[in-house]
């Protein structure tokens, strides 16, 4: 499956920041800030799937929510087709929402249990006031058959609880593509599905990308899935992107010490394969008012004295579009 990725950029994120105030202690007067997304920049081309991977609490979901404006960015820009959407409001915001959609992790929670499949899939059309009832019904039926829920009539007026997890996730995808968006944020869309169902949903999303030229930000903690889904991949650690590049390049040849440790810890479904063990100390903390130095400093096995003095390393191209944020990677 070779996809011709066009060179024009669809989404461009520049120095995006999201801080959450956290109150500590008994008195709420002292405000600290959790740097959930801290100075993140990347681009997604038309029809491209960018994977955003990392451990829980690294800020990948917050990044996704910022991109669809479920969260308000603290700082930075998000350009969609060259328009900065980070500060849109009112009618412009509503119009922008036709172009982006989100698919959620839990198909059991992302569909309103009291709404029929028809109502769920037609909801974006209804709130955007697109088409009349007959047109919407036709559109919903079309979307259902696109996502493989055939014949659509047999699904239209059923409720989510009558469907399996895989079918529900397909309904969620149908809802996401109903407005014909250019860009979809998919937040772990397959992590709650069973293995035999999962592949089907993954393949469906790839098909849609080709059919409708949809770009994805594919958020996942599972790097094996990312390998199959994504053209490029970015690895986040405590609010920062530490490594980014072509998927296969990042996975087979990780540069950043965190990325190397992370990839080495992924179990391989092959009893004859022996992983090389890369141990890193400690666990993931929380980026609450973090030090200006490298976020990975306290766990880093390759840190040098320079790292203690310098600010967090910038994400630099270390050759061939393979970016890493580390002073020690040349």
């Amino acid at each position: 499956m070779v996809v011709d990725i066009q060179t024009d950029t669809l989404v461009k994120v520049e120095r995006l920041k999201k801080l959450f105030p956290v109150s500590r202690g008994m008195f709420r007067a002292v405000k600290n800030y959790l740097h959930a997304v801290d100075d993140v920049s990347f681009e997604i081309k038309k029809g491209e799937i960018l994977g955003l991977a990392g451990e829980s609490g690294c800020g990948k979901t917050t990044t996704g929510k910022l991109l669809v404006r479920l969260e308000e960015p603290t700082e930075g820009h998000i350009f969609l087709n060259g328009v900065d959407i980070a500060t849109l409001e009112g009618r412009d915001l509503k119009k922008f929402r036709r172009n982006v959609q989100m698919i959620f992790q839990d198909p059991y929670e992302s569909l309103n249990p009291r709404m029929t499949i028809y109502d769920t899939v037609a909801e974006p059309l209804a709130v955007q006031r697109i088409g009349n009832i007959v047109e919407r019904q036709e559109r919903v039926a079309e979307m259902l058959s696109v996502v493989g829920l055939t014949p659509p009539e047999s699904f239209l007026f059923r409720f989510p609880h009558e469907l399996s997890g895989g079918q529900r996730q397909r309904v969620a995808i149908a809802r996401a593509i109903a407005l014909n968006p250019a860009f979809i944020v998919a937040d772990e869309p397959t992590s709650m599905l069973d293995v035999s169902i999962r592949t089907g949903v993954m393949k469906l999303m790839m098909e849609l990308r080709e059919k409708f030229e949809i770009s994805y930000l594919y958020i996942t903690h599972d790097l094996s899935v990312a390998r199959y889904m994504c053209d490029r991949i970015a690895i986040m650690y405590l609010g920062k992107i530490v490594e980014m590049g072509e998927t296969e390049e990042v996975i087979q040849n990780p540069l950043h010490p965190y990325a190397r440790a992370l990839l080495s810890a992924v179990p391989i479904p092959d009893p004859n394969y022996k992983r090389e063990a890369i141990e890193i100390k400690g666990g993931v903390g929380k980026p609450i008012d973090p030090n200006p130095q490298c976020r990975f400093l306290d766990r880093c096995p390759v840190a040098v004295p320079h790292c203690e003095e310098a600010p967090h390393p910038p994400l630099e191209d270390k050759g061939g579009g393979h970016y890493a944020a580390c002073y020690e990677v040349k």
Binding site: R97, V100, Q101, M102, F104, D106, S110, N112, P124, A172
Partner: peptide, 26 residues
Amino acid sequence: VKPYIEAAKVSGGSHLHIITTHIIPN
């Protein structure tokens, strides 16, 4: 806090829409 509320927001659903079609019926 259910994701379907977020999905409605992403689609551009107004506060009134979310309250009347999602929260109150549930």
